[in-house]
Write a protein that binds this DNA or RNA. Structure first.
Length: 782
DNA sequence: CAGTGAGCGAGCTTCCGCTTGACTT
């Protein structure tokens, strides 16, 4: 009898595979990597050929112990981690850390979780590929060296606790450069002319259609001139062309395209998409969600074809194989697809169901026929003018995959394409019922969304499916960038109209322009860090840096290059540059002199202070103490004006006294407030402004808050002092000694005695705080 | 939790890529 232990990376995968392999096989999971570089001394012995110092990660000790035990009992251990660089390294780390005997080990790989694939893998074991493992070690060591040498430079030269790395720093660079492009963008306007034509058909019915002028007019006067020429003109159809066109479906989902489409169609953030996909994966509804592969297994191609044939008919079927084109793809899995195409809906929550449906449709559509269209273009001449009107129509001849799925665009399109045209022939003379020239504006390049940034990174070959979402979170958590909505501003535009009787009208209308939803904006600290890194480490921030080192990793993987040699070539000049920068470069606080304060004549400037971007009046080294004020969230060091900076110093404003204590109004981290007796009351957004609020109104708000505080109290105990039952946002809780404690669900808070409260507090405290990584504090402790 | 903006400088922060977990203040 043989006891076989199979080790895969994911527990959900383990469960599925166990079913295929039968009784002789136990399948366990390593939960990803089990070892990593120690954090002490870089975890790398730089003097000794960059020898890595691996340790078993704290949260993996239990896993490794269990695997060790299981391996001892087994006669054969099958290492079945993914067949890519990281997977090969996991296999080797397992081999090493579990102290397995070579004759007891088999390395197997499969690219899809199907019975055939797994049985085939078991029949074809191979040795661990040490060259591939070495490529991973080089990748790991390089990232550690870059991250752990660069970040401390930032601590010294910009601000403590900042971070830099091969991936995150490029992500920030993309955002900073795009923001500067947008700032530098000069909007211009031009007049777009559209006409509504009418023509009488055979049966005397009146048909109308729209056409657009082939050119735009940069100035109002030219547009007006044109309309005047049109007054009383005759229009004649001079040409009609019809040509066929087709649309093809998108390939099945990878991690990045799923994040993009779920963002556009369902409004999910990339983190949300991944969390929901994870649940679908764990319940066995979809295949693995961190993948860059477009491949679909033979069995799913067959079942998909079956669904298409029975639901839509044979002519909707077009079985296709897709090839990955993204740089650095490693194809360890399939594309993201339903495990069972026969199942139309799955998921235990509304969001899971919506995401599942999206995946199902995309998978199905990828195997369907092209949509066939017929595009008609009609050219209309104008008597007395050389410009031409163009009307275009689109007729769907065969809907094909569009029956189930259409990928959305990032840019919201302004004009609706292809409508239906009435029957027309050359020589027809339609009448113009109305012609309008509308002022339109050029648009700055779009800001990135989370998903479009992921798309860009993937195009550059930077980052992996497993890190896209975490990277997006990291750059936000570090304060480099922020996801925000911006309301947009009213903008006037002009419309000139010509009616059927030749009358010309002109009006000015208002639209909202520049509104943004869930876009990524770089913050000042992100901009300053980026500028600093670009100044001193532009080679690391180069968009091709990753692609270049990936070539080296490939050469290591194919045995043409030794990994310590590669690292050495990189590290020597890099480390020199780091030391040089520490020694010679100026501190970079993004300081900018705005001008002189008209009241005192002292310098007014902005810079990044200990608590973020701020404005300052007066230099620090003069006798008179400088004055400080924090920048508002929507202000940037780069763009703030002297006037705007001076405005900041009008707060906090003293309003007067109440109960012998001062009342003042200001704007803090959480918005506008009134302060009294060291207590803060938030101002209501639309009703009050800290710049204008009066004492009477402030007292009203203070009293209102006091009333609310009183109503919060369910019961106050006399002893011990400070023990109280309070009502909060999440229901009743116990407050004691400045801390809050949760009340167990099955307890009625009104009945609690002081004794019972203290008992609950003791229980709460005895529970260990299990959080592995403390949440980052925005403010340093006082 | 919001107001600050400095030090004789303790001790800390940080990377990317695999995985899932246990919290509801």
């Amino acid at each position: 009898m043989t006891d076989n232990l199979v080790i895969v990376e994911s527990p959900a995968k383990a469960k599925t595979i166990e079913k295929f392999l039968g009784k002789d096989f136990t399948v366990k999971s390593s939960f990803g990597h089990i070892r990593d570089l120690s954090k002490k001394n870089f975890g790398i012995d730089i003097e000794n050929g960059y020898q890595p110092q691996y340790i078993i990660s704290e949260d993996k000790k239990k896993v490794v112990e269990e695997l060790k035990k299981a391996a001892k009992k087994a006669s054969l251990v099958w290492l079945a981690s993914d067949e890519d660089r990281e997977g090969e390294a996991i296999a080797w780390h397992l081999y090493d850390a579990l102290e397995l005997k070579p004759e007891k080990v088999r390395r197997i790989v499969f690219h899809e979780i199907t019975r055939e694939a797994i049985l085939h893998a078991v029949a074809n074991p191979r040795p661990i590929n040490m060259e591939l493992v070495n490529a991973q070690q080089a990748r790991r060591v390089l990232d550690r060296l870059v991250g752990f040498e660069l970040s401390p430079v930032l601590w010294k030269k910009v601000k403590p606790s900042l971070s830099a790395g091969r991936v995150q720093s490029v992500a920030v660079r993309l955002l900073v450069e795009r923001e500067r492009e947008i700032l530098a963008f000069k909007t211009t306007s031009s007049f777009r002319v559209a006409a509504l034509f009418g023509i009488t058909g055979k049966g005397d019915e009146k048909n109308t259609f729209r056409a657009e002028l082939s050119e735009r007019f940069p100035e109002r006067s030219k547009a007006l001139n044109f309309l005047k020429k049109c007054s009383g003109a005759v229009y004649e159809v001079s040409d009609i062309t019809t040509r066929p066109s087709k649309k093809s479906p998108s390939p099945p989902f990878t991690t990045s395209t799923l994040q993009q489409d779920a963002g556009r169609k369902l409004g999910f953030s990339v983190a949300q998409t991944m969390a929901i996909a994870q649940r679908l994966y764990e319940s066995g509804k979809i295949t693995y969600m961190r993948t860059d592969s477009l491949n679909l297994s033979a069995s799913v191609l067959k079942s998909t074809a079956g669904v298409i044939k029975s639901e839509y008919g044979e002519n909707y079927l077009n079985t296709r194989k897709y090839k990955t084109k993204s740089k650095g793809a490693q194809e360890a899995h399939e594309a993201i697809r339903p495990t069972d195409m026969e199942s139309r809906t799955e998921g235990s929550s509304a969001n899971e169901q919506r995401l599942y449906e999206l995946i199902w449709k995309r998978t199905l559509a990828s195997q369907m026929s092209d949509a066939r269209l017929e595009k008609t273009t009609v050219t209309i001449n104008i008597s007395g003018a050389s410009e031409k009107f163009i009307a275009s129509g689109e007729v769907m001849m065969f809907d094909g995959f569009l029956r189930v799925y259409m990928e959305s665009d990032d840019e919201e399109q302004e004009e609706q394409t292809g409508s239906l045209l009435p029957p027309l022939k050359t020589g027809d003379r339609p009448g113009a019922e109305k012609i309008t020239a509308t002022e339109r504006f050029t648009q700055h390049p779009p800001r990135y969304t989370e998903a479009s940034l992921v798309k860009k990174l993937e195009e550059l070959g930077i980052g992996r499916p497993s890190t896209f979402a975490p990277t997006i979170s990291t750059i936000q958590n570090r304060g480099y960038v922020e996801k925000e909505d911006r309301p947009g501003k009213p903008r006037e535009y002009r419309v000139i109209g010509l009616d059927a009787n030749g009358g010309i009208t002109e009006e000015t209308l208002t639209e909202t322009a520049g509104s943004e939803k869930a876009k990524l904006f770089p913050n000042d600290i992100g901009i300053v860090v980026n500028d600093f890194l670009m100044d001193h480490f532009n080679d690391i921030l180069d968009y091709n840096f990753t692609a270049t080192v990936e070539k080296d990793f490939d050469n290591i993987a194919s045995g043409k290059l030794s990994w310590p040699v590669m690292i050495d070539r990189f590290y020597n000049p890099f480390h020199k540059k780091v030391e040089e920068t520490i020694e010679t470069s100026e501190r970079n606080k993004g300081e900018r002199l705005l001008g002189a304060d008209p009241e005192s004549g002292r310098n007014v400037f902005v810079k990044i202070g200990r608590f973020g971007p701020m404005a300052q009046i007066g230099d620090s080294d003069t006798d008179e103490k400088p004055k400080f004020a924090a920048l508002r969230k929507d202000q940037r060091l780069e763009t703030i004006t002297l006037e705007e900076a001076l405005e900041l110093f009008r707060l906090p404003r003293k309003l007067g006294e109440y109960e012998d204590k001062e009342v003042a109004a200001g704007i803090g981290r959480f918005g506008p407030y009134v302060r009294h007796d060291n207590k803060f009351v938030s101002l209501k957004k639309d009703d009050d402004s800290p710049y204008t609020i009066e004492l009477d109104r402030a007292i009203e708000l203070i009293e209102e808050k006091r009333r609310a505080e009183r109503e919060k109290v369910i019961r106050e105990f006399d002893s011990p002092e400070g023990l109280a039952l309070l009502k909060g946002r999440w229901g009743p809780y116990i407050s004691y000694g400045g801390k809050n404690y949760k009340i167990p669900k099955n307890v009625d808070p009104v009945e609690l005695s002081a004794e019972q409260c203290l008992e609950i507090i003791r229980e709460n405290k005895s529970r260990p705080a299990k959080r592995k990584t403390a949440p980052r504090k925005k403010q340093p402790k006082k």
